[in-house]
Nucleic acid binder design. Structure first.
Lengths: 210, 210
DNA sequence: CTATAAATGTCGGAG
DNA sequence: CTCCGACGTTTATAG
């Protein structure tokens, strides 16, 4: 197998699994690692089949050349359309839950709005704290340096708006990496670790008002 | 199929491809997308097989439960050990090439050292410019905001060292995204787009001296 | 289509 | 083992 595209790669002769899907995509698997093929071509792409040689090419000019010495097994099946995967627990859902229960983020917090628009992208949650101050909240499943940088850019921008300034920052995630925590604290951003399962059980804030 | 782990996911009954590898890993594929399985369990993990139900678990307590209604085809093959994949063109190689030809980065540039160590990680290339000033270079295949932030942290740190200060910054990549370019320029960091293939053909700097 | 952020990212290397 | 950054990241989504 040879790949010539974003990089150049060569795979020596060996027994492998070739998978060709209905969308024309091709992948080559070894007998380990569930997720990642040794090599692949993502759709949209085209397979040119010659005796013993497959050429898989895409529009960008990337090419996968597969030389087949011997076929040990060949099998083809019609799978039909796939019903979608239903997921739960991703960032969007975490954001929803926090929007419904902002007090988890801090004493007396109330929601101004979700996805508060700015010139450099939407702030996940914009809140008002117990003292009437504005707080920008960045929500992540896993809190890493990237997220702190992202929030820092929002804070810099929002802090220039006289209607909002001064704007505090909260970095909320199910898990916060040590480096991210250090960077956040260095920038005066408070870190909140959120327990996703506990949050699902939390009574909504509006109900606790009565 | 049900997955209970880092998130919860459910996949309705349909015809799919199940792949079980020698390392015990399991993946479930639909008839599209070469790269990513619909669901999977990465090694190390264990498969518990009961009639019509597979339970795949790992040490972290994540679980994949697969209910099998009907087997349309079943085939098993011994693949043996896989000889490795040979790659070329990644960031490490780009860094090597630039280290060998620093003048590509700027007029009169010479290399001080590669992977210059700092408290927050190594700087890809530390160079001296034509005027004897110090320049930190961040090398990326694709230049995005992350890389600019990374270089900014290095510059902030190196700039405090009286032996080096003032330290200039160069962001070198095969491709630089507009947002990254804007951020870099805003911070006084110069952007250099590098042609990888051309660079491989460039005569090494030491040879051009004679 | 481009640009940007999320991902059960995965993977590999250093400490 | 954890932390950290690269990856042919891939993938989805918004503009």
């Amino acid at each position: 197998m040879d790949y010539i595209g974003r990089l150049t790669a060569h795979l020596p002769l060996a027994i492998r699994l070739l998978m060709v899907k209905a969308d024309g995509s091709v992948s080559i698997h070894a007998d380990d690692r569930a997720y990642k093929p040794l090599n692949w071509m993502s759709p949209p792409c085209r397979v040119e089949e010659a005796p013993g040689v497959w050429r898989v090419v895409n529009k960008a000019g990337e090419e996968l050349r597969i030389t087949i010495e011997e076929v040990l097994h060949d099998s083809s099946h019609e799978l039909g359309v796939d019903p979608g995967l239903i997921k739960d627990g991703v960032e969007a859902h975490l954001q929803e839950l926090l929007a419904a229960a902002p007090s988890v983020l801090g004493e007396g917090f109330t929601l101004i709005r979700r996805e508060y628009p700015t010139a450099i992208g939407p702030v996940d949650l914009l809140c008002r704290d117990g003292d009437g101050g504005t707080v920008a909240v960045e929500v992540k499943r896993r809190g890493e340096i990237d997220g702190v940088e992202q929030l820092t850019r929002y804070l810099e921008l929002l802090g220039r708006d006289p209607l909002l300034a001064p704007v505090g920052g909260v970095f909320a995630a199910q898990e916060i990496k040590p480096q991210a925590r250090v960077l956040a604290q260095d920038r005066g951003i408070r870190c909140v670790v959120v327990d996703y399962n506990a949050l699902r059980g939390v009574t909504r804030d509006e109900l606790t008002l009565f």
